[in-house]
């Protein structure tokens, strides 16, 4: 008897559960899930830039074929070349900033959480180092465009000219490698503070008595780092790498805006820029959708890696609970 009443009770309350979660799922379905399906659908349809097939014609896997393998006609070939280049650029820009960023962040995270050697002003440094991360990306691009401008009047050029290092202004923004290196630098500048704070939260989770034991046993600084800190940090380290890689695949703002004039720098065109260019101006939905789907598949794969390789898959959750 008592059993049935409680059961009835839980049934009567369960409808509130649905009501509480309904707004989220309705909005998600409308603004994210349907657009995702729509993207997949559009990837099988034609493009405006394609003179043979119109915008509304079903073309099967042709868009994928074009961007992945190229094809006959300049439209297919240009799309293919651009996409492959965009993929290369994305990876290059990511790896170039990530290697520097992770080394720097790890070093700082270990320093700031060191109980033996205190760095004065840790709180201040954390605040300052995270600050670039909250500044509007459009403004950041503007700042660095002004500092590393092409002309002899831009800050860096004018200093180098005055010092006699250069005899004529160097076109930092137009040059393939200097523009890439500057964008990598900007990304590092923006993100190292964030990565540092994530890694620090992982280090704080380590039991201090382990370090005490290591110190008593005469473990030196580097060996403590490589034999204790790094192995324990592995799950969160892995989490940082994969989330950064997923973030890197979407890299858009800085590469898109770091140019002078109206055209995006070819050497900075990432996959996200490739997609954006195709669905805004010319409405080549099919092409941009196909590129998006490829990006999506890679993202899903990387997301699954987090769960699989992380033997301790609750690492980020645990960390959240503790703090």
């Amino acid at each position: 008897m008592a059993n049935t009443t409680t059961k009835q009770k839980s049934i009567s309350y369960s409808k509130f559960g649905y009501m509480f979660i309904a707004p989220f799922f309705l909005v998600y379905a409308f603004f994210m899930f349907y657009p995702l399906i729509n993207t997949v659908r559009l990837s099988f349809f034609g493009n405006q830039g394609d003179s043979v097939n119109g915008l509304d014609s079903f073309v099967g896997l042709q868009n994928y074929q074009f961007i992945l393998f190229g094809g006959e006609g300049s439209f297919a070939q240009v799309s293919h070349d651009n996409f492959i280049q965009a993929f290369g650029n994305t990876f290059l820009l990511w790896i170039g900033n990530f290697v520097v960023q992770i080394v720097l962040s790890l070093l700082l995270a270990v320093w700031f959480s060191d109980v033996r050697i205190k760095t004065p002003g840790t709180g201040f440094f954390k605040v300052v180092m995270y600050m670039p991360n909250i500044i509007t990306a459009a403004s950041v691009a503007g700042i660095f465009l002004m500092i590393f401008g092409n002309s002899e009047f831009a800050a860096v050029n004018s200093i180098l000219l005055k010092m006699g290092v250069l005899s004529e202004p160097f076109r930092f923004v137009d040059n393939v490698w200097s523009s890439r290196i500057i964008v990598m630098m900007i990304q590092t500048w923006m993100w190292f503070g964030n990565t540092m704070l994530l890694l620090m939260s992982g280090i704080f989770g380590i039991d201090p008595s382990i370090y005490e034991a290591a110190a008593i046993d005469g473990s030196s600084g580097p060996s403590t780092f490589f034999r204790i800190t790094l192995p324990i940090l592995k799950p969160i380290f892995f989490y940082v790498v994969i989330t950064s890689l997923i973030g890197g695949l979407q890299m858009f703002d800085i590469p898109y805006m770091f140019h002078v004039g109206s055209n995006v720098n070819d050497s900075l065109r990432t996959v996200a820029v490739f997609v954006y260019e195709r669905f805004t101006g010319v409405k080549n939905y099919g092409m941009s959708a196909a590129a998006s789907v490829i990006l999506f598949i890679i993202t899903v794969f990387l997301g699954m890696l987090i769960n699989k390789f992380n033997t301790d898959s609750t690492a980020p959750k645990k960390k959240r609970k503790k703090v």
């Binding site: 805004t280 998006s292 990006l295």
Partner: peptide, 16 residues
């Protein structure tokens, strides 16, 4: 779906 970024669905989103 936490990891699904806006960039990936934006074509379908904009057309919709």
């Amino acid at each position: 779906v936490m990891m699904v970024p806006m960039q990936v669905v934006s074509t379908g989103f904009l057309q919709f």
